[in-house]
Every structure is written in C-alpha cells, then in structure tokens.
Write a protein that binds this DNA or RNA. Structure first.
Lengths: 221, 221
DNA sequence: GCCTAAGTCAATCAACTGATTTAATTCTAG
DNA sequence: CTAGAATTAAATCAGTTGATTGACTTAGGC
C-alpha cells in the first residue's frame, strides 16, 4: 500500500488504481445500493482485470467504505474550518447554521455533475452495520463541535435533551436533503432549488427556523 | 395464498406462518440491514424448516418488503384519518403538523417495545432500489395529501419550490428521527425524549418552526 | 545489470445465494 | 371417507460471493 501518490511512476500508477476503485465504488454504491454491489463488480467496473483488486487494496467492504469517507471528509472539514474562522464572533444564528450546511453543499458543487457522495453518505448513515463508520470519521471533526458550541449560545434556555434532539434533526436534514437533491439531479428530474447554493440557503432558512422554534412543555398533544 | 386469516383452521395456520415471516423479516432487516439478510435466513429464523418459505409465500425480496409495508400502513393511515377529521377547520399550524407526526409515533408506541418498523422504513426510503416501494405505498395516502393542503394555507406566500423543499424535509425528519429513537431504545441507550409522545411533541415543535420560518431570497450566503 | 518486493492477473476454493424440483404432510370439499 | 389441492419439508440446481493461491510483470535499490 503506497501513500505518496505521484512521487514515482510506480506509486502514481498504484495511486491511480486506488482512486479509480474509490470513485467507482462510490458511484456504484450510490446508484445501486450498498447491498447490491459486490467487491467483484467494483473491481471489474474499475477496469481491473484482477477480480480481487478491492480486497487487495482495501480489505473488507467496511474498510473500503471507510476509505471512501476519508477521501472526502478532509475537504469538507477544511471548508468548514474556513467558515468557522470567518464567522468568529458573529451574533447571527444563520452564520453558524451556514457553517454546518455550506461546507457540504459547496463540496458537492465542487465535485461537478453528477455526484454520488451524498447518496452514498445517506446510505452509510442509515445502515445499521455502517453508521458507526461515518460517525467516527465525520462527526468527530473539531470544527463541527465548535459550531455546535456557538449554536448552543443562541438557545441558552433550551433544555439539554431538546438541544440533543434538534442537533440530530439538523444532521439528518443536511444528509438526506442533499442526497435527495443529488438523486433528482442524477435522474434529470426537476429540483426545488436550481443550484447547490440555493439548496443551501433553503436548508439554512429551515434549520434556523427549526433551531429557534419555541419548545413546548412535555404535556403532549 | 390465503387471505381470509382465521376463517378456517388451515387458513389460520397459513396466516400465522405469513405473519411470522413478516415479523421476523422486519426485525432482521432493521437490526442487520437489508443487504445483510437473505431469504434463507429469514425462513430459518421464522422457524420454517422450508428454506424457500419466503419465496413461496411472498416471491422476491421486493415483494416481501412491500408486504411488510402494507402490513403497517393501514393502521397509520387510519390514525391519521382520525386526527384529520378532529383537526378540521383548525387555524393552528401545530394541529396539522401533528397530523403528520403523531400517527407514526402513536403507531410505534402501540407496537410495544422493542419495535423495528421505523428502522426498517428508514432503510427502505434510503435505498435506491426500494425507495419507490415506500413512496407508492405510503406517500400516496389520501389523508396525507389533505394534511399538506391544509398546511399550505398557513404559508400562502411561500413559493412553490420552497414548499416542495420543506415538504421533503418534513418527511425525512419524521422517518429518520423515529428510526434513530428506535435504535437508541433497542440498544438500551439514553434517548433525548423518554416517550414516543414526547418525541412527537419535540418533532412537532421543530417542524412547526421549520415550516413557518421566513425564506430568504436566493441571493445566497 | 540483476534481484527483491510490490502490484497485477487469472484460476480456484468452499460457502452461500435465489430458485426449482420432488416428496411428505395436512386440510378441505364433495 | 376419499380425491385432490395447498402447505411444509427437503434436496438440488446453477450462479455468485469473498477469499486464497500461484504465475507473471515491472519498478527501484544495490
């Protein structure tokens, strides 16, 4: 396994093979579903005569999934880091909500069209066997925690359990709304918003409303 | 295939077998993931010596999934129907949001503990191969459309694309928040809300805030 | 310039998959 | 009370899975 991609002709070749596998796997998983795609199909679709190329380079399917996640998350984290420093000191909730949403949408926009990472992520986060991978890799990023801390300051009176509840909601919203938009784009169907940037604005509006909504006592109905 | 369960000893037996398979499949799918469970495993876990019991009674895996959905949705639809008639004429947004949330949470509560349908549903709605099944079976219910029409009246100035966007968000929220709560319950972990009823209240608060949030012009950031 | 190690390829393995077939059992209809 | 259909059981099918194996190719250190 070689990490210094491009340093030598050989390492370049290997790095290209690994990248090709990651790209192909991400696409197949997004299009057909995690359960429907075997390592063999990925190897073949990635142009590897070797039917065990996935196993050789990455190991198990869980290892492959983790590698796909690790390929994407650093870029998202750095985008978020930039936004967090830019938002430092802001007293506008929307600025901090934007720190959650825009790194994701901007990353997807930068990947061109079509993209597959959003649908891939949504599946990973929903599957009982894989959700922990995503949680470990993406949800523990330092800038993410910083955003949440700032967000909490806008709702000092909100009970801790409600905060946790709504934090979960925000996570689900971002992941699945992006996945659904990506799917519509891939199918050539109409999307409510015409660009990733507008989709982000829509999400920020909605999440801001969700976060600042009053919370009822637990008297129920 | 017999439909009149319980009319005769024979039909009762068959109906019990089919129910046992549906229950077992729902549980295994929720716990291990759709892709990780074969029809054989389901047949065996359902106590059927016949390793082809699933195929015999239901056909393909997609047919089985559809049958699981159809087993649950009528009850949810009738709960929603009741709430819609009770809410008729109400000018409180929360009443109509409740018509979306409480039928689902009340149904889950009525299934006892633990439940598996919420996690099962979340997976179905996220999988590219199965999402249409859920859309056909559950999202076309008449009372659902009625709620949406009423909800629209509280946001007469909201552009159609924003309405569509936020409608999608609401759907994702309900499905995945319930699935996550169900998972926490199954793992014995702490949940933000202690009952399904309180979870529903939290969802209604959040969704109401989301729905009534102002929407920004599309100038972006 | 050769030799080691990394990567690629192709064949093979047992295990498992959905599906089909055959046999045994159970119940119903007449 | 029997003829026959429906259900359950069990064996079997070809195809696919992840994993292992050894042969071949090639880059890079000595």
């Amino acid at each position: 396994m070689v990490t210094d991609v491009g340093r030598t002709p050989r390492a370049e070749q290997v790095g290209a093979t690994r990248l090709q596998i990651l790209t192909t796997a991400e696409r197949l998983f997004a299009e057909q579903g995690l359960y429907a795609v075997s390592n063999r199909q990925i190897s073949a679709a990635a142009g590897q005569g070797n039917n065990a190329a996935v196993g050789y380079h990455f190991g198990t399917k869980a290892d492959l999934v983790r590698a796909i996640v690790r390929r994407r998350t650093p870029r998202i984290e750095s985008l978020r880091q930039e936004m967090v420093t830019a938002a430092a000191g802001s007293r506008d909730v929307r600025d901090w909500v934007a720190c959650l949403v825009r790194p994701v949408t901007a990353h997807l926009a930068s990947l061109g069209d079509p993209t597959w990472f959003a649908r891939f992520s949504a599946q990973i986060m929903t599957d009982p066997a894989f959700r922990e991978i995503m949680a470990e890799e993406a949800l523990a990023e330092p800038s993410l925690r910083e955003v949440l801390v700032n967000l909490y300051e806008f709702a000092p009176d909100m009970p801790a359990d409600v905060r946790e509840d709504r934090g979960n909601m925000i996570r689900h919203l971002i992941v699945h709304v992006c996945a659904e938009r990506e799917r519509s784009l891939a199918e050539g169907a109409a999307t409510p918003r015409s660009t990733w940037d507008e989709a982000a604005t829509g999400l920020i509006d909605a999440i801001t409303g969700l976060w600042t909504a009053p919370c009822t006592g637990d008297s129920g109905r």
